[in-house]
């Protein structure tokens, strides 16, 4: 049982250590990536991290505006004219009977 307790303590510690290690790595990578992306901008304009972040509300507003804008573009939906062929067996406008056999007097 004592060794069981040892395994439990060791196991919990290793799980924490590996996920804490992962946490630190992600933190460091994010810092490096942010520095590579925005480092120069921040230096020149003295911009803080808070300035670089876009809040969730702003993202939601932009998304909504884009969605509404796309829905408004109904005129651009189709650029192909849809002319349907209609089969009509008879029409006096194109009738040969009126056009040839009975010429206007």
């Amino acid at each position: 049982m004592e060794q069981g307790i040892t395994i439990a303590v060791l196991g919990v510690s290793i799980v924490f250590a590996s996920l804490a290690g992962l946490y630190l790595c992600v933190k460091i990578f994010v810092r490096i990536i942010e520095f590579m992306k925005f480092g120069n901008v921040r230096k020149s304009e003295n911009v803080t991290q808070a300035d670089m972040m876009i809040s969730g509300e702003v993202v939601a507003a932009i998304t909504l505006a884009l969605q509404l804008s796309r829905e408004e573009l109904h005129d651009m939906e189709k650029t192909i004219l849809t002319m349907q062929r209609i089969t009509r067996p008879y029409s006096p406008w194109s009738s040969k009977v009126y056009g040839i056999r009975k010429p206007a007097r």
Partner: peptide, 20 residues
Amino acid sequence: NPKLLLLGAAAQVGIFVTLL
């Protein structure tokens, strides 16, 4: 929000308590 990784570790305590 990488600190949430630690919550994933904490919930594994159940595994080792049950082992005992």
